[in-house]
């Protein structure tokens, strides 16, 4: 019995294990969330109606008697993501090169070896650092304007509130960071390793690259569409979008009540 107590005392903290899991867990959720997010935002490419539909759908308009939706849903969703974002960032920052000396070593090492996965990690660090600021701004905006997601209002934000440079940078940052992050998650935990881990790794890296290209393309086109809408809509800033067909509305209402 006595030895047990001693054992108990010298037991190493389990916190590092938990933190590692949380880091990966938040990363995973954020990474997958961003896929969904880009698809949702990308719906603008299909047209204003599509985007409007998606936006309202996200506000759970189909549950709403008049189909206006509950902006509070978005508020809480943003709050949740923001929390994950902050937790993830806080944990991520631990891994940053904390001193100039460490950073210098890292750079020297990269210069010497030219090793792709080490470079990718550096990309993650840099993009993480960028998102720390830009992501926070975006999330803060979303948090404070929950009910104001629709084709016009969003396009206004992009163009008239000069968010587009931020989005452009954030887009690249998040896509690189996210896809690399998901690839790294597979490596880190040995997922999808299969019988031949070396081959699987090559495959996963290919998938990672394709995903990055795909989502960047979606994001860029979406941003372009927002810009065009925003420029056209310049003189009516602040005016929300009105879906054209009332048919749609009734359809939605009947849908939700059935």
């Amino acid at each position: 019995m006595e030895s047990l107590i001693v054992d108990e005392k010298i037991k190493k903290s389990r916190i590092p294990a938990r933190l590692d899991l949380i880091q990966s867990g938040t990363g995973l959720i954020l990474g997958l969330f961003m896929w969904v997010h880009m698809m949702l935002v990308g719906s603008i490419i299909l047209g204003k109606d599509a985007f409007y539909f998606v936006a309202k759908f996200m506000e759970l308009s189909f549950l709403h008697p008049t189909g206006e939706g509950y902006p509070a849903v978005v508020f809480f969703a943003v709050l949740g993501v923001f929390t994950l974002f902050i937790i993830h960032a806080a944990l991520g920052v631990r891994k940053f090169p904390i001193s100039w000396k460490q950073h210098a070593i890292l750079r020297q090492q990269m210069g010497m070896m030219k090793h792709s996965d080490t470079n990718l990690w550096y990309v993650q660090v840099v993009t993480g650092f960028i998102m720390f600021f830009l992501g926070s701004v975006h999330l803060y905006v979303m948090l404070t304007h929950p009910g104001q997601i629709d084709p016009y209002l969003s396009a206004n934000r992009v163009i008239n509130h000069n968010m587009w440079p931020l989005y452009l940078v954030l887009l690249f940052a998040v896509e690189f960071h996210g896809t690399i992050g998901l690839y790294r998650l597979c490596m880190k935990w040995g997922w999808f390793a299969g019988k031949n881990p070396v081959e699987s790794r090559k495959k996963l890296k290919r998938i990672k690259n394709r995903l990055a290209v795909f989502f960047l393309a979606v994001g860029l086109v979406a941003l372009l569409v927002f810009s065009v809408i925003g420029i056209r809509h310049k003189d009516r800033v602040g005016e929300p979008y009105k879906p054209q067909a009332a048919v749609e509305k009734t359809l939605l209402v009947s849908n939700s009540s059935s």
């Binding site: 590092p16 294990a17 090793h115 996965d117 990690w121 880190k188």
Partner: peptide
């Protein structure tokens, strides 16, 4: 938990 999966080890 300190390993950041840089995979230099694996590759070299």
């Amino acid at each position: 938990f300190g390993c950041m999966t840089l995979l230099g080890c694996q590759d070299y």
